[in-house]
Amino acid sequence: MTVVAVIVTVLLTVAGGLTLLRIIRGPSILDRAVATDVLLAVAVAAIATEAAYSRDATALPVLVVLAVVGFVGSVSVARFAARKDPK
C-alpha cells in the first residue's frame, strides 16, 4: 500500500501543479474558476487517499463539506463574470 500511496502522491502533486499553472496564467477569470474546481477535486482525492492509506476515517466529514459547498465559488464567479459586457 505504501507503493500505491507514493504513486498517487506524485500523480496528484503533478496534477495540482499543472492546475496551479493554469490558475496563474489563465487568460480569463472563467479559466481560473474551472481550474480552481479541478484543484478542489485534486484536494478531495488527496484527502481520500490519505484516509485510505492510514485506514483512518477522521477526515471523511471534510470531504462531505467540500462536496457540498465546493461549487459555490464557481457559480458566484460565473455570475460576476456574466455581468461584464462582451469585447
Binding site: V3, T19, A45
Partner: peptide
Amino acid sequence: AAGVCLIAGALLSLAAGIALV
C-alpha cells in the same frame, strides 16, 4: 483493488491537469 482504483483516479486528475495547460 483499492490501490488500482486510487491510482486510476489519480491518473484522471493528472490527465485533467495536463489538459488544463
